[in-house]
């Protein structure tokens, strides 16, 4: 690892999503930070704790209700947060355009964010933001190391074909995969400190960006459930079913 001056600022965009582990039985759906974004926050914190970054700024888009997730991010340890006040159902491209405006305002050297939000599962925003800014990107990343006085980062990517290693010039966008780290939990001292950290609220107008979502969800439905099959009592019975009934062997 080359020693050198640290990355001045890491921007971590995060999304508030319904708790994916609440289970179907949960009557009240609690919101949480998108788990992939939580990994991004953790990574930024670890980078700062290694002395390789100075400031971590979080950003999310939504109504005042998402302040709860902002406070959770502040309690994890990010330095300050921006909420872009927009309660509309935005599509990934609209989100990317808003984030571009914020990136231009904040000028971070690195943007780290989850590879996808677990509610929408689109997996688009990071790549779109990189495209809009003309910045390099490394997606689905499971390891980050800074190189050469923080002018580049070496990233291990999880791809369908196995692991791939690339180096990207900074500033750049990095999207996180599951195995990058294990996010820390919010501690009570962290929560108390978070109460004193600033949350800035901005509107799209203040950022000078006008977006209108181009994707609209017309309806949602439940997928047809697979019917439960039969229980078999032995290996012999299973083999017989696979051969004679299912005809797959």
């Amino acid at each position: 690892m080359t020693q050198g001056q640290s990355v001045e600022k890491i921007l971590v965009p995060f999304k508030s999503v319904p708790d994916p582990y609440a289970g179907a039985a949960a009557s009240t759906s609690k919101s949480v930070i998108n788990p992939f974004d939580e990994i991004a926050i953790e990574e930024a914190l670890q980078i700062r704790e290694r002395g390789e970054a100075t400031e971590i700024v979080g950003v999310t888009i939504g109504a005042p209700a998402v302040d709860e997730q902002i406070r959770a991010a502040l309690a994890m340890g990010i330095d300050r947060a921006v909420r872009i006040d927009d309660a509309r159902a935005l599509d990934p491209y609209a989100v990317a355009r808003i984030l571009r405006a914020l990136v231009e305002k904040e000028s971070p050297q690195v943007v780290i964010m989850g590879k996808q939000a677990v509610d929408d599962d689109s997996n688009q925003v990071g790549q779109m933001l990189a495209g809009l800014l003309g910045w390099p990107q490394a997606t689905f990343v499971s390891k980050i190391e800074f190189l050469e006085n923080k002018t580049r980062a070496r990233c291990t990517r999880e791809t369908d074909g196995g692991l791939e290693i690339v180096a990207i010039n900074l500033p750049a966008i990095i999207t996180t995969d599951l195995r990058l780290n294990e996010p820390r939990y919010v501690s009570l001292p962290g929560l108390m400190k978070a109460r004193r950290k600033p949350i800035e609220t901005l509107t799209c107008e203040q950022l000078g960006v006008t977006v209108r979502p181009m994707t609209t969800t017309l309806s949602t439905s439940s997928p047809t459930r697979r019917a439960a099959g039969t229980r078999v009592g032995s290996v012999e019975e299973l083999m017989a079913k696979l051969k004679q009934e299912a005809k797959v062997l």
């Binding site: 709860e68 309690a75 939990y185 919010v186 009570l188 929560l191 109460r195």
Partner: peptide, 12 residues
Amino acid sequence: QQRELLDAVGRF
């Protein structure tokens, strides 16, 4: 503030 703290304890 109490609610936030108690929620955090529950989640932890």
